[in-house]
Computed example of a mutant assay.
Amino acid sequence: MGVVVVTGASGGVGRASARAFAARGDRVALLARGEAGLRSASREVEQAGGRALPLEVDVADFAAVDRAASRVEAELGPVEVWVNTAFSGVFAPFDEVSPEEYRRVTEVTYLGFVHGTRAALDRMKPRDRGVIVQAGSALAYRGIPLQSAYCGSKHAIQGFTESLRCELLHDSSGVRVTMVQLPGMNTPQFDWVLSRLPRRARPVAPIYQPEVAARAIVHAAGHPRRREYWVGGSTVATLLGDKVAPGLLDRYLARTGYRSQQGERRRDPDRPANLWSPADEHRDFGAHGRFDRTATRRAVQPWASRHHGLLGAVGAVGAGLLGAALARARH
């Protein structure tokens, strides 16, 4: 039973992860902005068998994150695992996103991870132990249309984490940092992220339940020597396909990326958006989004993460198949 900090813990993957750690009997600090979401997430942690410490924090504010970390250690004990999942975004073409909105997404989604990592390292390095888990995304490797600010932030997290990992190895540090790369998830984000799309935003299929990601994050926290874990089995071939046929995936996504990220129903212009203030301040959205009927609770992770050699061979074959499929789609 250890001390775990989860950012973005009031909803989605963060909330599912907090419950998963609590099921092990961990003491879990929940960092998020929304009071109602935090209150319900805290209750779920206690019901799952853990001890909860809910803290209202905007991860874009490093001083606030650092104060929260100090309070966690004072009330729960030394932080052993820090999980960064908090993010925000805007669904819109790049030129329809204001500079202020772009900056805010970057501050929350990228710098929020930097701030959490710094707060964790400042406490873990003197003890020479601890694990930091970054909730990444397949979009850290492959940008898609309509999410340029989010994709840019995920790319930045990837580069930042790789750099930090090298520094920790140079120092022979006992602190470990790993990433869990996620596919499309059934989380409330598609009902509260700022959108200027004509129809309701949706994740690109296949869609996974947040509990799938939570299991991967808990696994990564217990096995942090691997640099990254992948959730979902379709990403490797796609990424390799982009290397095999440069530019082809760009053209394919230009044709399909707008349609695949929108549902049939029109977007409600009055729905809440969490870019500047929490959408779950007065209403709890829970961990799941509105895609329960199509989301799966199963994934090939962590098996795939333990068999990179075989996966690479399969991915190489898949890349060729993907290239052929995209070529057919172009004609």
Rank of each mutant, 00 (worst) to 15 (best):
A221H: 10
A221R: 03
A221Q: 09
G222K: 10
G222Q: 12
G222C: 09
G222S: 06
H223A: 12
H223R: 09
H223V: 01
H223Y: 07
P224T: 07
P224G: 08
R225C: 00
R226C: 07
R226Q: 11
R227W: 11
R227S: 11
R227Q: 13
E228K: 04
E228F: 12
Y229Q: 12
W230L: 14
W230H: 12
W230G: 00
V231A: 09
V231Y: 09
V231S: 08
G232T: 02
G232Q: 05
G233C: 01
G233Y: 04
G233P: 01
S234W: 07
S234K: 02
S234E: 13
S234G: 04
S234V: 11
T235H: 09
T235K: 06
T235S: 00
V236Q: 13
V236Y: 03
A237K: 06
A237P: 06
T238C: 03
T238G: 04
T238D: 06
L239V: 05
L239K: 05
L239W: 05
L240P: 01
L240F: 00
L240K: 01
G241N: 00
D242C: 01
D242V: 04
D242Q: 04
D242E: 14
D242R: 10
D242A: 14
K243Q: 14
V244W: 06
V244I: 05
V244H: 00
A245V: 08
P246K: 05
P246N: 08
P246D: 03
P246T: 03
G247S: 08
G247Y: 03
L248P: 03
L248W: 00
L249H: 05
D250I: 00
D250L: 05
D250A: 04
R251M: 06
R251D: 13
R251S: 10
Y252C: 01
L253K: 04
A254Q: 05
A254N: 02
A254M: 02
A254G: 03
R255L: 11
R255W: 09
R255F: 03
T256M: 02
T256S: 09
G257I: 14
Y258Q: 13
Y258P: 08
R259W: 07
R259D: 14
R259F: 09
S260G: 04
S260V: 15
Q261N: 08
Q262P: 09
Q262H: 08
Q262F: 11
Q262L: 08
G263R: 06
E264G: 14
E264W: 14
E264H: 14
E264Y: 13
R265S: 13
R265D: 15
R265V: 13
R266I: 13
R267V: 15
R267P: 08
R267Y: 10
D268R: 01
D268Q: 03
D268T: 02
D268A: 03
D268G: 02
P269E: 11
P269F: 07
P269L: 07
D270Q: 14
R271S: 15
P272K: 01
P272Q: 02
P272H: 02
P272Y: 01
A273W: 04
A273Q: 15
N274L: 12
N274C: 15
N274M: 15
N274T: 09
N274I: 07
N274S: 15
L275C: 15
L275F: 14
